[in-house]
């Protein structure tokens, strides 16, 4: 879903430390990285991919149809504009630490252009056995029937690892990111999984802060027919404290784990108390 072995990926910020490292990792996984962009970098290659000065030039020469961004926070919004203004339909932004006020107009612009943004401050996504567009360790994943969506990074790996060990492979694992303003919400991802014929069941991993999980619960109640299992991190998190992720904060008594668990359970989602319970709950929800 969203990406496969045909995806022609462009890497923005490809010559940086993060960009070049992860380009190598993505290529090794089998991702079709067709090129990269670093202003002033034309003529170089990274992991066999040619580097261009601009996204426009890169698209003209490679036919790229997706992009992943590894540029520093203060330049990342510009990189997203450059991608969508040049017609890239799907942009993944890994960058952490982008000011929220910068993301507000970016979000609106991406929407107006009809493009899709994943992130920022996310691990990206992976369609096991086909393509990895992100920073997750590929080897813990396996192809299979489970669609997974999460606001977290390593916690996602934890759950994916448990699923794979239990023989439950994944259609696609999507990390939507831990910031207050993100391009793809739980609801957006759930809509995609519900429509994806290969996805038979869904796992949703949320955390404290905001109301994205509550919105997801409403959407599941109304539109999702596939068995869904959830996990919410932060049951022990105190109010008013930012727990690492900029968006993970209980403010004004809202955004607690208890509220999110209650909303999901009311929508028929089985919510695990611990990540290791997810495979068993999923199996029983799938009737396997």
């Amino acid at each position: 879903m969203l990406i496969d072995r045909e995806t022609r990926l462009l890497v923005q910020g490809i010559t940086g430390r993060e960009g070049s490292f992860h380009t190598q990792q993505m290529v090794e996984y089998g991702t079709n990285v067709v090129g990269g962009v670093t202003p002033g970098g034309r003529g170089k290659t990274v992991a066999g991919a040619p580097v261009f000065d601009t996204v426009a030039e890169a698209i003209a020469e490679t036919g790229a149809n997706a992009s992943i961004i590894y540029v520093p926070a203060r330049f990342a919004p510009d990189a997203i504009f450059e991608a969508v203004d040049n017609g890239i339909p799907f942009v993944v932004c890994i960058t952490e630490g982008i000011p929220v006020n910068d993301m507000v107009p970016v979000f609106a612009h991406v929407k107006a252009k009809g493009a899709r943004l994943l992130g920022p401050n996310c691990p990206g996504l992976i369609t096991p056995g086909q393509a990895k567009v992100g920073i997750m360790p590929g080897f813990i994943h396996a192809p299979g029937p489970v669609g997974l969506v999460s606001r977290s990074g390593t916690l996602t790996y934890e759950v994916v690892d448990a699923l794979t060990r239990a023989g439950l492979g994944q259609t696609t694992a999507v990390g939507i990111g831990g910031d207050p303003v993100i391009g793809t919400s739980f609801v957006d991802a759930l809509e995609l999984f519900q429509a994806d014929p290969a996805t038979e069941a869904i796992v949703l991993i949320g955390e404290i802060g905001g109301t994205d999980e509550e919105d997801a619960a409403r959407f599941i109640q109304e539109r999702v027919t596939k068995p869904t299992v959830g996990f919410i991190a932060g049951r022990t998190a105190p109010p008013g404290k930012r727990m690492g992720h900029a968006g993970a904060i209980i403010s004004g008594g809202a955004g607690t784990a208890a509220e999110k668990v209650a909303a999901l359970e009311a929508a028929g989602v089985r919510v695990a108390e611990s990540p290791f319970q997810v495979p068993d709950l999923l199996r029983s929800a799938m009737g396997r």
Partner: peptide, 28 residues
Amino acid sequence: SFVKLDGTIGCIVNGAGLAMATMDAVKL
């Protein structure tokens, strides 16, 4: 990223989501 709490189990974790899940597991 560090937030002081009142318990007795010190936690050192990589990743914010996993760090919260680890605290929850301790409580569980």
